[in-house]
Simulated assay, not measured.
Amino acid sequence: MTDLLAFQVAFVAILLLATASDIHSLRIPNLLPALMILLFLAAWVWGFPFRDPIWSHLAHFALALAAGMALFHFRWFGGGDAKLYAAVALWFGLGDAVLLLLLTALTGALVVVVRMLFHIFRALAFDSGPPEHRRRLFERKIPYGIAIAAGGIVTLLQTYPWSPS
Protein backbone atom coordinates (compact mmCIF):
# COMPACT_ATOMS: atom_id res chain seq x y z
CA MET A 1 0.00 0.00 0.00
CA THR A 2 1.49 3.31 -1.00
CA ASP A 3 1.73 6.21 1.43
CA LEU A 4 -0.78 8.16 -0.65
CA LEU A 5 -3.31 5.33 -0.52
CA ALA A 6 -2.82 4.85 3.23
CA PHE A 7 -3.73 8.48 3.90
CA GLN A 8 -6.73 8.25 1.59
CA VAL A 9 -7.99 5.09 3.29
CA ALA A 10 -7.62 6.72 6.72
CA PHE A 11 -9.48 9.81 5.43
CA VAL A 12 -12.37 7.65 4.22
CA ALA A 13 -12.38 5.57 7.42
CA ILE A 14 -12.75 8.65 9.61
CA LEU A 15 -15.62 9.91 7.45
CA LEU A 16 -17.36 6.54 7.57
CA LEU A 17 -17.08 6.53 11.36
CA ALA A 18 -18.54 10.04 11.48
CA THR A 19 -21.39 8.97 9.19
CA ALA A 20 -22.18 5.92 11.31
CA SER A 21 -22.16 7.99 14.49
CA ASP A 22 -24.36 10.69 12.96
CA ILE A 23 -26.89 8.16 11.66
CA HIS A 24 -26.98 6.33 14.98
CA SER A 25 -27.11 9.25 17.43
CA LEU A 26 -27.24 12.50 15.41
CA ARG A 27 -23.89 13.37 16.99
CA ILE A 28 -20.38 13.52 15.59
CA PRO A 29 -17.81 13.10 18.38
CA ASN A 30 -15.17 15.84 18.54
CA LEU A 31 -12.53 13.14 18.28
CA LEU A 32 -13.33 12.50 14.61
CA PRO A 33 -12.74 16.05 13.27
CA ALA A 34 -9.65 16.18 15.51
CA LEU A 35 -8.38 12.94 13.95
CA MET A 36 -9.06 14.35 10.48
CA ILE A 37 -6.95 17.42 11.32
CA LEU A 38 -4.16 15.30 12.78
CA LEU A 39 -4.24 13.08 9.70
CA PHE A 40 -3.89 16.17 7.51
CA LEU A 41 -0.89 17.36 9.54
CA ALA A 42 0.71 13.92 9.32
CA ALA A 43 0.09 13.81 5.56
CA TRP A 44 1.59 17.27 5.12
CA VAL A 45 4.70 16.36 7.13
CA TRP A 46 4.97 13.01 5.31
CA GLY A 47 4.90 14.78 1.94
CA PHE A 48 1.39 14.03 0.68
CA PRO A 49 1.13 15.64 -2.78
CA PHE A 50 -1.34 18.41 -1.99
CA ARG A 51 -2.21 20.47 -5.07
CA ASP A 52 -2.36 23.85 -3.33
CA PRO A 53 -0.02 25.67 -0.96
CA ILE A 54 -0.62 25.19 2.76
CA TRP A 55 -2.01 28.72 3.19
CA SER A 56 -4.82 27.84 0.76
CA HIS A 57 -5.76 24.81 2.84
CA LEU A 58 -5.68 26.85 6.03
CA ALA A 59 -7.79 29.61 4.47
CA HIS A 60 -10.36 27.05 3.29
CA PHE A 61 -10.44 25.56 6.79
CA ALA A 62 -10.92 28.97 8.42
CA LEU A 63 -13.69 30.00 6.01
CA ALA A 64 -15.48 26.66 6.39
CA LEU A 65 -15.26 26.81 10.18
CA ALA A 66 -16.53 30.41 10.30
CA ALA A 67 -19.44 29.59 7.96
CA GLY A 68 -20.23 26.42 9.88
CA MET A 69 -20.26 28.23 13.20
CA ALA A 70 -22.57 30.88 11.75
CA LEU A 71 -24.93 28.15 10.52
CA PHE A 72 -24.71 26.49 13.94
CA HIS A 73 -25.56 29.80 15.62
CA PHE A 74 -28.81 29.98 13.66
CA ARG A 75 -29.44 26.26 14.34
CA TRP A 76 -29.30 25.36 10.67
CA PHE A 77 -26.32 23.06 11.16
CA GLY A 78 -25.11 20.95 14.07
CA GLY A 79 -21.87 21.77 15.86
CA GLY A 80 -20.36 18.41 14.96
CA ASP A 81 -21.31 18.93 11.33
CA ALA A 82 -19.61 22.34 11.30
CA LYS A 83 -16.41 20.95 12.80
CA LEU A 84 -16.37 17.91 10.52
CA TYR A 85 -16.93 20.00 7.39
CA ALA A 86 -14.11 22.37 8.39
CA ALA A 87 -11.77 19.42 9.06
CA VAL A 88 -12.60 17.96 5.65
CA ALA A 89 -12.15 21.39 4.03
CA LEU A 90 -8.62 21.49 5.44
CA TRP A 91 -7.70 18.70 3.03
CA PHE A 92 -8.59 20.84 0.02
CA GLY A 93 -7.31 24.24 -1.00
CA LEU A 94 -9.48 27.16 -1.99
CA GLY A 95 -9.38 25.94 -5.59
CA ASP A 96 -11.44 22.89 -4.60
CA ALA A 97 -13.76 24.70 -2.18
CA VAL A 98 -16.63 25.05 -4.65
CA LEU A 99 -16.42 21.37 -5.65
CA LEU A 100 -16.52 20.23 -2.02
CA LEU A 101 -19.37 22.59 -1.16
CA LEU A 102 -21.39 21.65 -4.25
CA LEU A 103 -20.99 17.89 -3.76
CA THR A 104 -21.83 18.18 -0.06
CA ALA A 105 -24.88 20.38 -0.71
CA LEU A 106 -26.22 18.11 -3.47
CA THR A 107 -25.78 15.03 -1.32
CA GLY A 108 -27.34 16.89 1.62
CA ALA A 109 -30.38 17.76 -0.47
CA LEU A 110 -30.72 14.11 -1.44
CA VAL A 111 -30.48 13.06 2.23
CA VAL A 112 -33.19 15.59 3.17
CA VAL A 113 -35.55 14.41 0.43
CA VAL A 114 -35.03 10.72 1.21
CA ARG A 115 -35.55 11.31 4.93
CA MET A 116 -38.70 13.38 4.36
CA LEU A 117 -40.13 10.74 2.02
CA PHE A 118 -39.36 8.04 4.57
CA HIS A 119 -41.21 9.92 7.30
CA ILE A 120 -44.13 10.82 5.04
CA PHE A 121 -44.59 7.20 3.95
CA ARG A 122 -44.22 6.02 7.53
CA ALA A 123 -46.80 8.54 8.72
CA LEU A 124 -49.24 7.61 5.98
CA ALA A 125 -48.82 3.89 6.52
CA PHE A 126 -48.59 3.61 10.29
CA ASP A 127 -49.58 6.87 11.95
CA SER A 128 -53.23 7.45 12.63
CA GLY A 129 -52.48 10.10 15.24
CA PRO A 130 -53.41 13.77 15.27
CA PRO A 131 -52.28 16.21 12.53
CA GLU A 132 -49.60 17.63 14.85
CA HIS A 133 -47.54 14.55 14.10
CA ARG A 134 -47.54 15.32 10.40
CA ARG A 135 -46.41 18.91 11.02
CA ARG A 136 -43.42 17.58 12.92
CA LEU A 137 -42.20 15.77 9.80
CA PHE A 138 -40.35 18.90 8.76
CA GLU A 139 -38.88 19.58 12.21
CA ARG A 140 -36.75 16.44 12.34
CA LYS A 141 -32.98 16.66 12.55
CA ILE A 142 -30.97 15.51 9.57
CA PRO A 143 -27.76 13.44 9.85
CA TYR A 144 -25.81 15.82 7.62
CA GLY A 145 -22.59 13.91 8.34
CA ILE A 146 -23.68 11.61 5.50
CA ALA A 147 -23.50 14.49 3.03
CA ILE A 148 -20.21 15.81 4.41
CA ALA A 149 -18.65 12.35 4.12
CA ALA A 150 -19.94 11.83 0.58
CA GLY A 151 -18.79 15.28 -0.51
CA GLY A 152 -15.36 14.76 1.05
CA ILE A 153 -14.85 11.30 -0.42
CA VAL A 154 -15.93 12.27 -3.95
CA THR A 155 -13.82 15.44 -3.82
CA LEU A 156 -10.84 13.35 -2.68
CA LEU A 157 -11.40 10.99 -5.60
CA GLN A 158 -11.58 13.91 -8.01
CA THR A 159 -8.51 15.73 -6.73
CA TYR A 160 -6.19 12.91 -5.61
CA PRO A 161 -6.69 9.77 -7.73
CA TRP A 162 -6.26 6.48 -5.87
CA SER A 163 -3.73 5.01 -8.26
CA PRO A 164 -0.13 5.20 -7.06
CA SER A 165 2.13 7.51 -9.04
Rank of each mutant, 00 (worst) to 15 (best):
F50N: 10
V9P: 03
A18E: 04
L124G: 14
R27N: 08
A150Q: 06
P53C: 04
K83E: 04
H24W: 10
F118S: 15
A70T: 12
R136V: 09
A149M: 00
F40I: 02
A10F: 07
A34E: 06
L103H: 07
L4G: 02
S21W: 08
L41R: 06
A64W: 04
A70M: 11
W44E: 00
L103Q: 10
T107H: 04
I142F: 13
L63Y: 14
Q158M: 13
I120Y: 06
F77K: 03
G93P: 07
Y160R: 06
F121Q: 06
D81E: 01
G47P: 15
R27S: 13
L90R: 07
A18F: 07
W91Y: 14
L71P: 01
F50R: 11
L15C: 10
L38H: 01
D96F: 00
V113A: 12
N30G: 11
T159W: 06
H119K: 05
L31P: 05
Y85Q: 08
L110A: 15
L15P: 01
S165E: 13
A97R: 02
L31H: 09
A18Q: 05
L15T: 04
L32D: 00
T19G: 01
P49L: 09
R136W: 11
L100V: 01
L35F: 15
L157V: 10
R135F: 04
R134K: 12
L71M: 11
F7C: 10
V98F: 14
V45T: 05
V112R: 08
D22L: 08
T159M: 10
E132A: 08
S56F: 07
A66Y: 05
L31Y: 12
A86D: 06
L99G: 01
A20T: 13
A67I: 11
